[in-house]
Design a binder for these strands. Structure first.
Length: 419
RNA sequence: GGUAGGGUGGGUGAGUGGUUUAAACCGACGCUCUUGAAAAGCGUUAUACCGAAAGGUAUCGUGAGUUCGAAUCUCACCCCUACCGCCA
C-alpha cells in the first residue's frame, strides 16, 4: 500500500509505475474519491464538534429540551453523511490496496518475464557421460518418494517423502537454520495457518477467484503459502524501537499452494506441488538499511547454493514480474536436468513500506518520531526445489546420488545407493 | 467444549449515562538546583485522520445497538486468567 498523499503528489510517477508493472489501477477515480472523502470528513467532524458542545451548554445551565431537540437534528444529519463516507471509504481503500509498490530505479523495466536480467552466475553445468535422468525417475528408482499413494490419499501434486528423502529434507532444513543462526537470525517454527487479515497485509488475496491460497471453510483462516505471512504478521500493530532493529528471523514452515492452473509440463514431479517445507529469512529494518540487507539476503542465498555445490544464476526481476509488494526482487535459479534449463529455487524481496503500512508496523526513532519500517523476505531453502537440484546434478551413472559434502554432517550416509 | 473472573494510555490502576477535558501513582524525558550524581521541585509524556494554521475529530479488546449524549447500558465476537471436561 502506498501513502495516499504520495499518490496525490506523484500522480504521474505512480501511473507510470502501474503501467511498467502491468497493474490496472484507476488512479483518477481514487483521487476523485479522496477529494470526496476529505470533504465529508470535514463536514462530519464539524457536526460532531457541535454535538460535543451541547454538553458544555447543558453543564452551564442551558435549556434541556432545546438541547435534546438540537441534538436530534445533528443526529439525523450525521445519519445521512456517515453511511456515505463509509461507502466512499470502502471503494477508496479497495482502489488504494490495488496499487503496487514503487520500484527500485535500477530494476529492469519490462512487462514481459523475459525482461528480467541475469546478474550473476556460479558453478559449472554438470557434464554427464550417460543420459541423465529427471528427479522424478531418480526418486522413484531410489524409493525416495510416492506420488501415487499421495494422489490416492490427498490428491495429485501431493507426495510422500520416504527413506533418504526424509533425511535429506531434514538435513537441508538444518543446514539453512544453522547457517542463519550463526549470522544472528532468530530461529522460528511458525503456525501453518494464519488469519486472512494477515495474508492481506502481506499482499495476498486469500479468497479471490484466482487465489493460490487454501482457505479454511467457516473461519477466517488460510493455510500459509510461505512463512513470510506468519513472520510478517508477527509484529502486526506494533511500534518497535530503533535500537532493536534490524530484527532478523529464520522461519521454518510448511507452505501450501493451490497452484491453480499450474499443471503443465513445467510442473512435473516435485517442482510444483501443493505442499512443501521452507526455511524463510525475514527482516524488519530501518528504511535506510533495507537495500543493504536485501543484498545481504541475496548473498546468503548465494552462499547456501554455493555450499551445496550447485550451478545457479541470479536474476534481477523486471517490473512486469515483481508482483504487488516488491520494490525489488532477486531470484536464484539452479540448473535442472528435468527442465533442461534453469529452475527457480529462491526469491528475495525488499517490500519497503508496502507491507508495514498495511500491517501497521512502525519504528520509533531515537528522536521520538515514528515511521513505517521496511520489511524484507527471502528463501533460505525451499526444500522440494533444493532436492530436485541436488538429485539431478549429483546423479551417477549407476543411478545413485552423491550427497553434497556440506550435508553429510547431518546424515549417516554420503551416497543414496540404487537398490 | 463448560463455568467464573477479567481486557482502560509505556506500566499499575480509578472511573455505573452529562462536573472526565480518562484521575492518581510509577516509569521515561526535559528544566531548575549541583563540581558531578542522587534527592527535591516544576514541566512534558499515545496514535490516527482533517486542516496552511488556529484548532477539530476519532480511539477505553473488536463490531453492532440503545440514547440528544456511552469507557459506563444491551447484544455478538475476540483475547487473557483460573478451574472443570476432552486430548497428542
Amino acid at each position: 500500500m502506498l501513502d495516499i498523499k504520495f499518490i496525490k503528489e506523484n500522480e504521474k510517477l505512480v501511473k507510470q509505475n502501474c503501467e511498467n508493472r502491468n497493474f490496472q489501477c484507476d488512479i483518477e477515480r481514487l483521487l476523485e474519491l479522496d477529494d470526496k472523502r476529505r470533504e465529508l470528513i470535514i463536514k462530519i467532524d464539524d457536526l460532531k464538534s457541535e454535538k460535543n458542545k451541547l454538553n458544555d451548554i447543558l453543564k452551564s445551565g442551558g435549556n434541556k429540551n432545546e438541547i435534546i431537540e438540537k441534538g436530534k437534528q445533528i443526529k439525523s444529519e450525521l445519519e445521512k453523511n456517515e453511511p456515505e463516507l463509509d461507502k466512499i471509504l470502502e471503494e477508496w481503500k479497495t482502489l488504494l490496496m490495488q496499487i503496487p509498490n514503487i520500484t527500485h530505479p535500477a530494476a529492469p523495466i519490462s512487462k514481459e518475464e523475459t525482461g528480467s536480467g541475469e546478474i550473476e552466475k556460479y558453478g559449472e553445468l554438470p557434464k554427464f557421460d550417460f543420459e541423465p535422468k529427471g528427479h522424478e525417475e531418480l526418486m522413484k528408482n531410489l524409493d525416495l518418494v510416492d506420488f501415487e499413494r499421495a494422489a490416492k490419499v490427498s490428491g495429485s501434486k501431493f507426495y510422500y517423502l520416504k527413506n533418504e528423502g526424509v533425511l535429506l529434507e531434514l538435513a537441508l532444513i538444518r543446514l539453512a537454520l544453522d547457517k542463519l543462526i550463526v549470522k544472528g537470525f532468530i530461529p522460528f517454527i511458525t503456525p501453518d495457518l494464519a488469519k486472512d487479515v494477515v495474508l492481506e497485509g502481506i499482499g495476498f488475496n486469500p479468497r479471490g477467484p484466482e487465489t493460490q491460497v487454501y482457505s479454511i471453510e467457516n473461519s477466517d483462516l488460510s493455510l500459509v503459502g510461505t512463512a513470510e505471512i506468519t513472520m510478517g504478521g508477527y509484529h502486526m500493530n506494533e511500534i518497535i524501537s530503533e535500537e532493536k532493529l534490524p530484527l532478523k528471523y529464520a522461519a521454518l514452515s510448511h507452505c501450501f499452494r493451490t497452484e491453480a492452473g499450474g499443471y503443465g509440463k513445467h510442473s512435473a514431479g516435485l517442482y510444483r506441488v501443493h505442499q512443501f517445507s521452507k526455511v524463510e529469512m525475514f527482516a524488519y529494518v530501518l528504511p535506510e538499511e533495507s537495500e543493504k540487507i536485501h543484498t545481504e539476503f541475496k548473498n546468503i542465498e548465494i552462499e547456501i547454493f554455493k555450499d551445496l555445490g550447485l550451478p545457479f544464476r541470479v536474476i534481477d526481476i523486471c517490473t512486469g514480474d515483481l508482483g504487488g509488494p516488491a520494490y525489488r526482487k532477486y531470484d536464484l535459479e539452479a540448473w535442472m536436468v528435468s527442465k533442461n534449463g534453469w529452475g527457480e529455487v529462491t526469491s528475495t524481496s525488499d517490500t519497503t513500506t508496502y507491507q508495514s503500512r498495511r500491517l501497521n508496523i512502525k519504528v520509533k526513532r531515537k528522536n521520538g518520531t515514528a515511521e513505517f519500517l521496511h520489511m524484507l523476505n527471502g528463501t533460505a531453502i525451499a526444500v522440494s526445489r533444493a532436492i530436485i537440484a541436488i538429485l539431478e546434478n549429483y546423479q551417477q551413472k549407476d543411478g545413485s546420488v552423491i550427497i553434497p559434502e556440506v550435508l553429510r554432517k547431518y546424515l549417516n550416509f554420503s551416497v543414496i545407493e540404487n537398490k
